[in-house]
Design a protein around this nucleic acid. Structure first.
Length: 552
RNA sequence: GCGCCAAUAGCUCAGCUGGAUAGAGCAACGGCCUUCUAAGCCGUAGGUCGCAGGUUCGAAUCCUGCUUGGCGCACCA
């Protein structure tokens, strides 16, 4: 926005300097224009002279002086230019420039902040992907919110996004699940049963068993085939997962069942292709993949001596399928405990001659749940986990999403239930939402007092001259670039930090200055500013899936 | 033993991919409601950016080596 105007200006001066023989073009695209951290260092600052000095072994302050002369030809943007420190050139904008940010916000409305930096790139975000063995737990919650928000960000920046859920309803885990259900079923009928040693102990199994009894009594008691029980468990649990996801605002574009890979022969196909490249061999009745040829310490089994593939093989086949479906960028959201599987799959992709740089794994660290100040130990089997549903019951969807996004994926996330529930008033999500509600309240008040909401194009913005007003305008102006960066860096937490900053700017402004006053000119100008802040807050909140309430 | 992630204020964490004097929220202390929502604001205090080297005009940020914590290292997923 305004920053890019300034960047363009500096670029033009750079070019002029090249044409005038002041310097070579060695530093093209290497310098930057950024917002300095401290006050008094201008609205923007460039390291131009120092970068160039490094390239040409000259005195940076001398180059800075030449750049300043060129910049001083500008009449529209700049108020003054200074050389500072080791050779920074600090640019001070004409104050009136800042209010120009309000026009695009007003014109674009909900679309302000969106961009086409993705250029329609076809991207798949695969996330959650939990097998249907139980309700979604806290870890899945972080996965779900992270994946969903990354998808939202990419969509907002012009990517063609597909959200996919990959799951597997076969395999050992599901067999144990079926056995667990059957045992509970028999148990409830008062019949002899044997609960599997490593069975799933969650109460949800009992509920499913009870449902079967309510429906059909004991008619399943002699069924030997486990398929029935597996299907009952899977259907019930999947429906449950789906309900939870809907509840936290998440919908998938497609679901992919591992079965498909078998049914359509893609598993054998991958093995055949690897074999053709002499990358597999048989040993101890198992089939091995030469991962050692791709920088790994040892080879890995892809087909067990039982004839059953290990998880690697379908994972590789699945990724090949993603490539075949034409995705340019494949993002997987995995918990840190899956780190070990990543190199194998990447090796497989490489082995198949595909471009592994198109696959990006977002690894998020664990969520530590604190209850009564103590860490809650969680285990899916023992059902000592806290579910996403329970969390939502306690803190609500908005707080859940906000909290899960407050930390970058790389950081462990501490979720203190007491803090999130008992002190919900101090919850940062309210800080942001409250700012939005206040803005709505101001508009209501203005209308009540007979002040019509202004039309920006007809409003003189020159009365906006307070420091707090400039601060708000500057923050607003930084929004579009922030969204673009957060998206391409897969860093949703930056949106959260932006929202807190903008809200903070607004609360400060609000406490120091009154919007609706006797001064007509000032009132309408400030109402325009408020409309801009409100719109950007709403857009940002929408981007992370948090509500923007009009009243609190 | 090997791999990945982290280490920044008392606590929880940012730090825009190498910039100038280190940032926020809680917690602590002191102030601000007859005025558009006090779920808010203002001020004070709080730091050897885990340790040691290296790279350069310049390092919390990049490289190497250590230390501590978390997660992994299956013919489980």
């Amino acid at each position: 926005m305004i920053r890019s105007q300034v960047k363009t200006l500096v670029d033009q001066c750079f070019q002029q300097g090249v044409e005038q023989g002041l310097w070579s073009d060695a530093a093209a695209n290497l310098y930057n224009v950024e917002v300095p951290r401290h006050g008094g260092q201008g609205d923007f600052s460039t390291n131009f002279a120092m970068v160039l000095a490094g390239k040409e072994k000259r005195n940076p302050r001398e180059i800075a002086g030449q750049l300043v002369d060129l910049l001083n030809q500008d009449e529209d943007l700049l108020d003054k230019v200074e050389i500072a420190g080791p050779g920074f050139v600090n640019l001070f904008l004409k104050p009136s420039v800042w209010s120009t940010v309000l026009a695009p916000i007003s014109e674009q409305g909900r679309a302000f902040g969106l961009s086409d930096v993705g250029k329609g790139k076809k991207v798949m975000v695969e996330f959650v992907s939990a097998n249907p063995t139980g309700p979604l737990s806290v870890g899945h919650g972080r996965n779900a919110i992270l994946g969903d928000t990354i998808a939202r960000l990419l969509k907002a920046t012009g990517h063609d996004v597909t959200r996919e859920y990959y799951f597997n309803d076969a395999g050992r885990q599901m067999r144990v699940l079926a056995d667990s259900l059957k045992a509970r079923y028999l148990e409830k009928l008062g019949l002899e049963n044997e609960f599997p040693e490593d069975g799933y102990q969650g109460g949800y199994i009992n509920e499913i068993a009870q449902g079967m009894i309510n429906e059909a009594g004991d008619s399943f008691k002699d069924v030997e085939d486990q398929t029935l029980f597996r299907k009952r468990a899977q259907d019930a649990i999947f429906a449950d997962i789906d309900t939870t996801l809907k509840r936290i605002g998440i919908a998938f574009d497609s679901y992919y069942n591992e079965h498909t890979l078998y049914e359509e022969g893609m598993i054998e196909d991958v093995v055949a292709e690897l074999r053709k490249k002499d990358l597999v061999y048989e040993q101890d009745e198992a089939t091995w993949f030469k991962t050692s040829e791709f920088g790994m310490e040892q080879d890995r089994v892809i087909i067990k001596n039982t004839g059953e593939p290990t998880y690697r093989l379908p994972d590789i086949a699945y990724h090949r399928e993603k490539f075949r479906r034409g995705f340019d960028w494949m993002i997987n959201v995995f918990g840190a405990d899956h780190i070990a599987t990543v190199p194998d799959v990447l090796a497989g992709i490489e082995a198949l001659g595909l471009d592994k740089s198109k696959v990006h794994v977002v690894l998020y660290q664990f969520v530590t749940l604190l209850r009564d100040g103590k860490q809650v130990k969680m285990s899916t089997r023992k059902a000592t986990f806290v579910t996403v549903d329970e969390l939502v019951d306690e803190v609500g969807v908005d707080a859940l999403r906000f909290f899960f996004l407050m930390r970058k994926p790389d950081s462990q996330l501490e979720f203190d239930l007491e803090l999130a529930t008992a002190q919900s008033q101090e919850n940062p999500v309210y800080y942001v939402q409250y700012a939005h509600a206040r803005l709505c309240s101001i508009e209501r008040m203005a209308i009540e007092k007979g002040v019509a909401l202004p039309v920006l194009a007809e409003t003189d913005l020159s009365p906006l001259q307070e420091e707090e007003e400039y601060q708000l305008l500057k923050t607003l102006a930084s929004y579009p670039a922030l969204v673009a960066d957060a998206a391409t860096d897969l860093a949703p937490h930056r949106i959260i930090f932006f929202l807190m900053e903008l809200s903070g700017n607004f609360h400060s402004f609000y406490n120091k200055h009154k919007v609706v006053t006797e001064d007509q000119q000032l009132t309408v100008a400030r109402l325009c500013l408020c409309q801009g802040v409100k719109a950007v807050l709403a857009n940002g909140l929408d981007l992370v899936g948090v509500a923007a309430p009009e009243k609190m």
